[in-house]
Design a protein around this nucleic acid. Sequence first.
DNA 1: AAGGAAAACGGACTACAGTCCGTTCTGAAC
DNA 2: GTTCAGAACGGACTGTAGTCCGTTTTCCTT
Lengths: 200, 200
Amino acid sequence: MERNLEVVGTATPPPRADATRNRARLLDTARRLVAERGAEALSMDCLAEAAGLGKGTIFRRFGSRAGLFEALVDDTERAFQEACMSGPAPLGPGADPVTRLVAYGRRRLDLVVEQGALLAASNHGPSALGLHPASRAAGMHVRVLLRAAGVRADLELLTIQLLAALDPALVLNLLRLPGMTLERLGAGWEDLARRVTAAG
Amino acid sequence: MERNLEVVGTATPPPRADATRNRARLLDTARRLVAERGAEALSMDCLAEAAGLGKGTIFRRFGSRAGLFEALVDDTERAFQEACMSGPAPLGPGADPVTRLVAYGRRRLDLVVEQGALLAASNHGPSALGLHPASRAAGMHVRVLLRAAGVRADLELLTIQLLAALDPALVLNLLRLPGMTLERLGAGWEDLARRVTAAG
DNA sequence: AAGGAAAACGGACTACAGTCCGTTCTGAAC
DNA sequence: GTTCAGAACGGACTGTAGTCCGTTTTCCTT
């Protein structure tokens, strides 16, 4: 008898019951603590104690602090990605590429305002690269839009340069500056996007 | 008798001899350790021991780890800033603004390759803002060039967006990507700068 | 239902940035 | 030269992310 009837080749064994239960418990507790005291104040020791679990369990499950936050924003990121790929225009297909690119940045800025601390904390490493799936998806999306807009350039690089302007940590800090508003950032993004796509 | 003959008004008392000596000793030791083992491997405990000083002294002098690295790159940053303001073209005055902007980014990328780890470690906070003097000077310079190039936009914001593409941590990570070279980054910057300044 | 291998767990442990406060040193005034 | 106020120092202390390995739990096999 095979241990896995569905996939014979690269079979990943199903997670154990306690692993699943504890994962859910950690995420629930984390969400509660974040709601109560903010994302920055959430330490791993604190979470472990509040969830009644060991610290090692957190790191086994999520790999790092950033990995935990990545899991926390996973739903939102999936929904956002879905909206980009198959939702209504102007974010989804239907509008022209530049309009979609503008809408992408504006919606992204909204997201940062809504849950910026979570997003910033979910950034692994020094700066955004195409490592975690969410940022990989973002890069793909923007690159496709740029190509569709007829931009002829090093699209991979241009994409990274554009997305750097939407980096949650950067945006969060900008919003703390006097005289900086979400509207202004949105207008700035639109201007940048139009300039970059203007030449062709 | 006045304690300070030169500046009467807001007189900052001169630093004590031991403070000056220890500051120099810390910087020397730090430079040596960085040369031997790299910037990432330099811990403050380690530096304190190697310099034969207490850890408190480091923090009293430099405020933070980033502050220490800021002091370490201070010479280079000053020279760079000087070259931008009054050096030979195309970096300094003489060339047209767009050419200067292109040269600025290219030279900045060179600097990141030369001492990227130091620059990355000297970044306070989450992402670059106009807080420490070096980045304030960079912002001023780019903003002036954009204005001189006739760009009509939210220049403060556009400057930040452009400089985000030169962030040391980002650039350092990009260079680790397969197929990414300094030349490619330079070309990418040039393309971005020309696109942004094209519209007016 | 019993056995056992592998996965998951727990919490002590390490390494690190940054703080605190009692102690030491400097330099200016007399 | 003595004094002394305040600057500078030292290193123990705190809080944090992440690691390690002996112990416990799961669940497949028989």
